[in-house]
Design a protein around this nucleic acid. Structure first.
Lengths: 354, 354
DNA sequence: CTTACTTTCGGGTACGTACACGAAACCATT
DNA sequence: AATGGTTTCGTGTACGTACCCGAAAGTAAG
């Protein structure tokens, strides 16, 4: 430890000295409060400019007994899928990091299969006084309405995991779904040969979330088109997420077609893997999504060839940090923060960081 | 903004009140300074325990006019390779982040091809009074000596990008070279068929850095062994890094063997790609390392099939943050922080974050 | 020129911690 | 008991900013 360079003439005190006023007046200018004549305000402003004054955040948040309240609105971790565990963890890490700097998080969870639960939570949030919102806009319509209400209250909000374009959120943190699907297709192209049939599987109960899956499907098809692969592509939507339903649908389609590769557009890929294993199907290559325990098991056993993951934990972390940097450091925020599209294999999954 | 929950009875003042002493005494205990009787020290310690007291970092660094001085010792960004640009960027980002909290970085660069320049810089660092060191231990011997000197001075040091095991550094931040090589092999196995010959290329001038490349080669071979791939593996070391030398060596080996896949163990893969293109060789699949502009160009043109990258920028960022968390938050640091092993393709490189 | 009222500003205290200085208490010698 | 020395502790000030209160200056009306 060494003593720092000292005698750097900076801070409100120096500004006050130069402007020949008290620090109180400088303070009023800085926090643009009333009670300063236009003349002195200008001289002070000029001096601030000259000095390139940067307020000391430490002292600021120490002196200010205010806290920033952030509402977090994401799906609950259901027994059906624990995908949202990861973003929640990222949010919790961020929480610990920003807490000493005066940011408090309040978490609200909703049921992915129940729009009403979402609406109810938004009402609660609106009744409180919050300074920012981090949300997963799963339900298009309802999320739009809530976002608009936030905008009216001048409360910045960040979308996470999936986007609703056109609703100028402070930022979107999440995957580029189209390219994500294209990458799936690229990987698949290594696994099948020119004439093999390929199956796309969408497994989702809610129409709203299905919409996101369709963007991946588009990307997938786009790759095969632009690389003039002539593989026939079959596609099914499975609207019941339990294993038996999945099994039934897959059995049907697999008997009808000679499928050599399957692309599952979300984390439910483990159900498909289970099906392949149980029915002892050989030679079918599987590509799917997300670093979940179930999926990794099948990756290890090489039932799943590739998993694509988009750093769900970091999505949560970044989302909070965006709000933090905006509200505390008044930083300029990019409108979209696309997550990297990560490829997981048997060899590298051990080193993966969500 | 809302006012926070207030009247939380915490802080030195509360401790002092409960222990019936002044805050000065509490302060002495907290910073374990001398001048406190064993008895009162124990009562204060107990109260601190009970309250689960966490010192306010803001107030602490505000009141303390000390700064932490960190020395950063990494290769300079040469014209030959700008790999170290990325870690430097990460370090710079971290610098901006920790500066308001009283941490100052001093950067020292050395020439990768000149051990003397490394030694000279370590001497300068030792002559200054620093509180921590982040270094790339490229030269085995010299790095060991420097690390030992740091240890003697009780200065924590973090290794970045490559490790020297057995030198209990505070932490190693970087890739697991063996697994990295295995992944290269896995990817290669998709690109060649059972009997094709595969070429491993090490391009490096310095023996010391060559050592790291050998760890990747081991991993590569290990994969082929454990998956009983019978592909014949050829290997060359190229000790001159300029293009003409690379071209000469490659021409020789390619004419002698029927090579179908090439694995380049570091970022020099673009030289090999250039060779393939200029000599109009077709049907040879190329896998190599690092998200560098030259490499990406060839990835786009599909001359390079896969690039493996290990977040060089984040390595720099994490390295600094390790020291920050250790020195400022006195956090417990894991001994190794392996970076994820990322796979880059034509489809996903756009979204890659170093 | 008062009086009353508004605008503009300075001084003081507080946030939670670090650290220097000096006061009080303790102990051991004469 | 008086002296000197050491250990133990309390008080005060500082870090850079926020915010309150009241003083000074300015303005308008009588």
């Amino acid at each position: 430890m060494q003593s720092s360079g000292k005698n750097e003439l900076t801070g409100v005190k120096e500004i006050a000295r130069r402007a020949n006023v008290s620090i109180g007046t400088v303070d009023r200018v800085l926090n643009n409060r009333t009670g300063v004549s236009e003349k002195t305000r200008n001289t002070i402003l000029k001096i601030i400019e000259e000095l390139n004054y940067q307020p000391n955040i430490l002292a600021r948040t120490l002196a200010s007994k205010k806290s920033l309240h952030i509402a977090v609105l994401i799906p609950s971790v259901s027994s059906e899928t624990n995908y949202w565990q990861a973003p929640l963890e990222g949010i919790t890490v961020a929480e610990a990091e920003v807490k000493p700097y005066g940011m408090l998080l309040e978490k609200y969870f909703f049921d992915q299969n129940d729009k009403q639960s979402f609406i109810k939570q938004t009402e609660i949030i609106l009744s409180k006084q919050v300074d920012g919102v981090l949300m997963a806009p799963m339900f298009m319509e309802e999320s739009s309405i809530f976002a608009d209400q936030c905008k009216k209250l001048m409360v910045p909000y960040v979308f996470i995991n999936s986007d609703i374009p056109g609703h100028n959120s402070l930022c979107y943190v999440g995957p580029d779904l189209h390219h994500s699907g294209s990458l799936g297709a690229h990987l698949m192209s290594y696994l099948v040969s020119g004439t093999d049939q390929v199956l796309i599987v969408n497994i989702s109960k809610e129409i709203d979330t299905l919409h996101h899956l369709l963007r991946k499907e588009e990307g997938f098809r786009a790759y095969f088109d632009s690389h003039n692969c002539s593989n026939p592509i079959v596609k099914i939507d499975i609207r019941d997420t339990d294993y038996l339903s999945v099994k039934k649908e897959l059995t049907k389609v697999m008997s009808k077609h000679q499928i050599k590769g399957i692309f599952v557009t979300n984390s439910r890929v483990s159900s498909v893997a289970r099906f392949l294993e149980e029915s002892a199907v050989k030679g079918v290559k599987l590509v799917g999504y997300d670093f979940l325990e179930d999926n990794i098991e099948y990756l290890k056993k090489e039932t799943i060839e590739f998993l694509i993951s988009q750093k769900p934990k970091e999505q949560g972390y970044r989302g909070i940090m965006m709000l933090y940097n905006f509200l505390v450091h008044s930083a300029v925020i990019d409108q979209t923060y696309y997550m990297p599209i990560d490829i997981l294999t048997k060899e590298n999954y051990l080193f993966y960081r969500n």
